[in-house]
């Protein structure tokens, strides 16, 4: 169980999460939902260890290998799609497998030659190839059409012990069979 107790966090001059109390399971899929600006990404960054809380505590993260699919694709522009995936797992076959799962058939293309949706899928393939105990997916289906979302959700579902997603609509959560947590209802502060 991952437990956040009275967590306040944000960035210099901007508090995003205020007095957040939350319990997350160790297994399964969880979808964080909230209106824009309510701190879904900030919470994922806290869970990834990229941001520390200003106050409060987070328990249950020790020893977890975590992969983070960022809100931006963050692909290395000088590497091909395949190399961008391979670089995190050092396994060309695994990289090719996950690119195929994401329906990227030509891994030899550079990111700037790919559409926004394709870049998103390469970023998702990279995250899946890295694997780990906990996958943090920040808007993983952004820019994908409904059919593709459905097919990809089917392929990544249950591929990691714990998946925490930041999504905008309940439909995406349902595709992943994820338990929905309304972040705006978990905070007692402003």
């Amino acid at each position: 169980m991952i437990r956040l107790s009275h967590v306040t966090a944000g960035y210099p001059g901007k508090r995003v999460l205020s007095d957040l109390n939350l319990e997350l399971p160790d297994r399964g899929a969880v979808a964080l939902m909230a209106p824009s600006g309510f701190g879904k990404t900030t919470l994922l960054r806290l869970l990834a260890g990229l941001l520390g809380p200003e106050s409060g505590s987070i328990a249950g993260l020790a020893g977890k290998r975590t992969a983070f699919m960022f809100q931006e694709d963050r692909l290395l522009p000088w590497l091909t799609a395949e190399k961008n995936v391979e670089i995190v797992c050092d396994d060309p076959e695994k990289a090719r497998y996950w690119l195929e799962q994401m329906e990227i058939l030509d891994g030899g293309q550079y990111p700037d030659a790919l559409s926004g949706g394709m870049q998103r899928r390469v970023a998702l393939a990279r995250c899946m190839a890295f694997g780990g105990d906990m996958l943090l997916l920040d808007e993983p289906f952004k820019g994908l059409d409904a059919d593709l979302r459905k097919r990809i959700a089917e392929r990544i579902k249950e591929k990691a012990p714990l998946m925490i997603l930041a999504v905008h609509d309940a439909e995406e959560a349902a595709l992943m069979g994820a338990q929905i947590i309304r972040l705006d209802e978990q905070m007692t502060g402003p």
Binding site: A67, F68, F70
Partner: peptide
Amino acid sequence: GLLEMTKMYRFSRWKRLRYF
């Protein structure tokens, strides 16, 4: 953002130097 990505995906120092 890219630097943070290399840390998140645990790039070794050599890999970070070579690829980032």
